[in-house]
């Protein structure tokens, strides 16, 4: 488990991370979401032991991570711009990492290289941005560390490769309990992969929740009521986060379980009624608007 308590980091006079506290459970995919400059990379670099926190505490399996080889053996950090040695090819990088990570699986690495159609002898500086990310990802996976810290790892990957990455995550999580921590500014990218998400904004955590909890507890209801009083009746006792109306079609974002909402609307007379799951983006918009942020501006620019 990774525990972050009151983490703060300043770069000269700029506060990049401000009192962040997050817990990352094992064998889950943790998504760290935020706009550019929100502090995602800084948090990840501190998690990786690259940066030293000004204050606060990071523990990986109860070990402090900064300057601690034992803690670092449990994680692999894929930076937003991964570095490869000058004139190196995939084999060179494998040699380096297999010398550094005790459990690096060379056989698996070369198998993955073939599957991803990456030439082990080709110089990495001739790779496209996406190919470099794939290679960095494969090196990270094959290091067989417990935690894989990925900064924008899916950025620049085509849909097929993105699917490939996701399936490797699933496989590694199932087989050896891998815990990926993925930082991204793209909510849609993380939606179908994360178990838990933390939203960073201006260095602080706006919220940190299990995705399933969020998805189960918030629903979108589209409905056309038969009568005027029916609306009041249906919504009484429900926490309505948002309400829109186009003609007679009303759309509500309601905090409740699907079953409870369906049961409530079954008691009123409706011409049309449908309960729909919210996308991650919609959930965030709703959740953050509740706490007073205009999330569209934060996430979507």
């Amino acid at each position: 488990m990774i525990e972050i308590h009151d983490l703060t980091k300043n770069f000269e006079r700029i506060r990049a991370v401000d009192n962040v506290s997050v817990t990352i459970r094992e064998n889950t995919v943790f998504g760290l979401i935020g706009t550019n400059g929100a502090g995602k990379s800084t948090v990840l670099r501190m998690l990786a032991g690259v940066l030293k926190a000004d204050s606060g505490d990071i523990r990986i399996d109860d070990l402090p991570v900064y300057d601690n080889v034992e803690a670092k053996k449990r994680l692999f950090f894929i930076a937003d711009e991964p570095y490869f040695f000058a004139n190196a090819n995939a084999q060179t990088m494998e040699r380096y990492y297999s010398g550094v990570y005790e459990n690096f699986d060379r056989e698996e690495f070369y198998q993955y290289l073939e599957k991803f159609d990456l030439d082990k002898n080709r110089k990495i500086n001739t790779f496209s941005k996406g190919m470099k990310r794939q290679l960095a990802f494969l090196l990270g996976v094959c290091a067989h560390t417990k935690y894989l810290l990925c900064d924008e790892v899916l950025d620049g990957l085509d849909p097929v490769m993105r699917q490939g990455v996701k399936s490797i995550f699933a496989k590694e999580m199932e087989e050896r309990g891998l815990t990926p921590v993925i930082a991204s500014h793209n909510l849609r990218e993380l939606e179908d992969i994360c178990d838990h998400v933390g939203l960073l904004h201006k260095g602080g955590v706006l919220l940190s929740k299990d995705l399933e909890d969020m998805k189960c507890n918030i629903q979108k209801v589209q409905c056309v009521f038969a009568g005027v009083d029916e609306e009041l009746k249906a919504l009484s006792g429900l926490e309505v986060l948002k309400k829109e109306q186009r003609g007679s079609l009303r759309t509500y974002t309601v905090r409740s379980t699907r079953e409870e909402i369906e049961a409530r609307f079954a008691t009123v007379d409706t011409v049309f009624c449908e309960v729909l799951p919210l996308s991650l983006e919609e959930i965030f918009i709703s959740e953050t608007e509740v706490v007073g942020y205009d999330i569209k501006k934060l996430i979507l620019g």
Partner: peptide, 16 residues
Amino acid sequence: CDRRKVDLYHSVPVDK
């Protein structure tokens, strides 16, 4: 002097 290299060398489990 290079952030990308620092990210690599300081994140791997090698004693400083």
